[in-house]
Write a protein that binds this DNA or RNA. Sequence first.
DNA 1: GACCAGGCACATC
DNA 2: GATGTGCATGGT
Length: 205
Amino acid sequence: MYKILLAAFGPQNWWPAKTAFEVCVGAILTQNTSWKNVERAITNLRKKHLLSPASIRRVRRDRLARAIRSSGYYNQKAGRLKTFARWFGCRLRDRFKNAKGIPTSGLRNELLAIPGIGPETADSILLYAFNRPTFVVDAYTRRLVERHHMLPDGASYNEIKLLFESNLKKSPKLFNEFHALIVQLGKTYCRKTADCKECPLRRSL
DNA sequence: GACCAGGCACATC
DNA sequence: GATGTGCATGGT
């Protein structure tokens, strides 16, 4: 599947961001929201110099909320960004530059303990910000797996994640590109059930 | 106006 | 463990 998708769509070059922290901000803002709306929010944050842990901790909550308005759920997400910025600032500054030396599973548990960081956001951060070989399962991935009967319908997040992780080389580069390609596939062919033949995998999502 | 988008937390059963 | 609901914008 990976080879077919790569041939069909080409390298996706995710994640578009200047710093690891910016990747994390994007991962939180894109929760149940289109990337287009998130881009606007990030552009705003950059304009207001709010793309560092310190500045996000300092800024007033309502001002932060206004800046990310376009990404939806702005009150909730403003709180989530502030909590996350505290963790990122403290945890990553003192002990381990770029979180090197910390096992992926430990880092994942820390992320999951932060309110507003669920499994998908945690895995996106691990993969795209910290370059860890962790597979990201999103709604498109679930549809792909169910549509192709790779697992029984209703499989858990972890079952789907393990399906990919245990059948592929544990390479951040590969996981990065594969997840991005699945999203591209979903965006392009989702719900176009009449056009299955156009879908590189011959089955629309 | 309905439906969707690169989810998560919390209540309830 | 499964299901339902609030959170909110912008595009189709």
